[in-house]
Every structure is written in C-alpha cells, then in structure tokens.
Design a protein around this nucleic acid. Structure first.
Lengths: 168, 168
DNA sequence: CCTATCATGTAATCCGTTACATGATTAT
DNA sequence: ATAATCATGTAACGGATTACATGATAGG
C-alpha cells in the first residue's frame, strides 16, 4: 500500500464518491461540471488519474465492468471515508486567494475601463447562471452545495459592483 | 534562445522588475510579500527559478555582483517590456476561481458553525491588515495596486458577511 | 561568542496541464 | 453511411511545491 499526500483534488474525488456512490471517472466529470467545478475546476484527466492514486493508497477501491467497455468503477472505502471525515471536521484559517487574471493585470497597470467592461459582462453572466441553478435546485440537494452557491452569488455581486465602479 | 511559456508567475516577475528596476530574487520576494502576494502567493524558490527561466528566453537579463556574495541581479529587457505590455493590454473574460479550502469543506458537508467561526476571525484579521495598508499607503503608489487592494477589501467584507450569516 | 534569524540558493519530487488517441453513440 | 460529438483513457512535460543546505548578520 502506497503512501500518498491528499490534495484538494483528492477530497473532491472522495467527497463526490461518498455522495454519489460507485462511479466512473466520466460520471465524476459530469458531477464536477455541475457543482464544485464552479469554484474549483479540474481537468478531466485528473478524474482518471486521481482515483487511481487514491486506489493505490486504499482510499477507494477499483473494479472493472465485466464485458463491454470494461470501464473502471470506483467506490470510497472505509479508509477513504475516515480521511474525508477527518478533513471535513478540521477547521481551517487558510484564506482564499483571489487568483484572478484580470485583477493581476489591473495590479500591473492595465487600463481599468477596458478590463472592467469585459469583467462586468463575464461576471454578470456567471451570476445569472448561479441564480438559475439556485432557483431550480431539487429539494434533495444537501445544504453544503447550497451554501457554497450562496457564497458564489455574493462574490459575483461584489465583483460586479467593483468592476462597475471601475468602469466609471 | 529558448522558447518558454509565460505564466502568471512570469508576469508577476516582469511586472515587479518593471516597477522596481534591477532586483535580486530576495528583493522580489520582499516586494511580493507586501503587495501582490496578498492575492497571489508565490514560493520563494519560484523567485529564483522564474527569473532564470525568463533570462533563458530573453525577457530579462542577468548579471552578477562583482565580489562579495556575487548575488544575481535581474533587469527587464525590451522583449520583456513588450511581452508585459501585450499581456496587460489584452482584456480577459476569464473568471476568478474561489479556490477556498473552507468553501470546499463546506461544500462537502463540514459543520458550518465551526468553520464559520474560524473563517470570520481570519477574514476580519485580513480586512484589518488591508485597511491598515490602504491608510498608510505612500502617495506615489500607482493606481493598479490601490484598486486591487480595494477589491481585496470588498471581497473580505463579503466573506465576513457570508460566514457571519452562517455562524447564525 | 553563540545562536537565532535573515538571506540565498539547489535538487528532487509530484501534481496538474496539455497533447495525443481511439472507441462508442447520435444525428443527418 | 458519414460526420460529429460523447466517452474513455494514456503519456509526456513542466511549473510549483517541498525539502535540503549553507552563508551572512544581528541580538543576547
């Protein structure tokens, strides 16, 4: 059994497997795209390699479909559940980094008006998306994703205001 | 002359060299720590390796101190200036990712109250820092950093509100 | 003088990105 | 049938992180 370091990517995979049960990498990709991907994007390749890493260390188990495409199926193990729970119950004081390309350009002297115009538009579109998701969210969605979405909405509002003010 | 891909890290180094003139990696580290590092952190090792990469591709030039510690000194070249300017004048519609560890935990079911308590505190402390920086900023600081700081302040306010609401 | 801490780097590792490839489905 | 898109992976590369190491400077 190999030792690996668990990264945010690891916890995303573990969390999704816990939520959705046995899944293929492609199913995970779909899940990510409609949820956590809005604030933490992953390359699709990572959803193939990360479960493999996790399997090598016993956090998930891998089986293959009999016949057909013999796709890989992953399930979270007790060890995986324990690791996820430990991570979840540890509070963190780490702060978000505003790693926004536009903000970096602004910092280094880009023309605020031009930047702002593009950013206002992009952020507004994102806000509309978020509100649509919120308004059509099935009742059985757990509170975590709802709350995260709420944060996304607030962030978008703040960003829109900021860039609007810059646009003058 | 080697071809390299310019990353955000590259532009940070170029931007700082443009602003500060000839600098050692350590000086860059100090600069980052007091400015752009608040929303885009870098490992100190990167401030040694990145200028080297940039030098190999002609974006900066490298000299060594005569005698003493023979430290490396980097200066932005015309090529570097041009690349920086091209990057700066291209608008982007890319959006920030809210890659916040606490938000990820929340998403995957962590206890909101416990998380929120820690986050409120951390974000408040950060806000105080930002306000102190703003209030003691020398007059010769260009608008870019000022505006980026303003975004930081607004983000902190939104984050504090969000986590306070969660804390109930 | 001793010992923290600051300053300055190098090396190894590894995760994440990018590129490449091909098999299955669906639409026209 | 054919083209387009969806689905499913693998491989290579490179930037970022981590760990290691040592030389200078300042404080006690």
């Amino acid at each position: 059994m190999q030792e690996i370091r668990l990264t945010p990517t690891s916890y995303i995979v573990l969390g999704l497997l816990e939520f959705a049960g046995e899944s293929t990498p492609y199913a995970l990709k779909q899940l990510v795209a409609g949820s956590v991907g809005y604030f933490w994007t992953l390359q699709h390749a990572q959803l193939y390699t990360e479960p493999e890493r996790l399997a090598a260390a016993g956090y998930v188990s891998e089986t293959r479909e009999e016949g057909g495409r013999r796709r890989r199926l992953y399930t979270i193990t007790d060890r995986g559940r324990a690791a996820l729970e430990a991570w979840r119950s540890e509070t963190t004081t780490e702060l978000a980094e505003l790693r926004e390309p536009a903000l970096l350009k602004l910092f280094f002297g880009a023309d605020p008006k031009r930047l702002a115009a593009a950013q206002v538009e992009a952020n507004r579109a994102r806000l509309v998306e978020y509100e649509a998701i919120r308004d059509s969210m099935p009742d059985d969605v757990p509170p975590g994703p709802r709350q995260a979405l709420e944060m996304g909405i607030r962030f978008e509002r703040a960003a829109i205001e900021f860039w609007e003010d810059l646009a003058g």
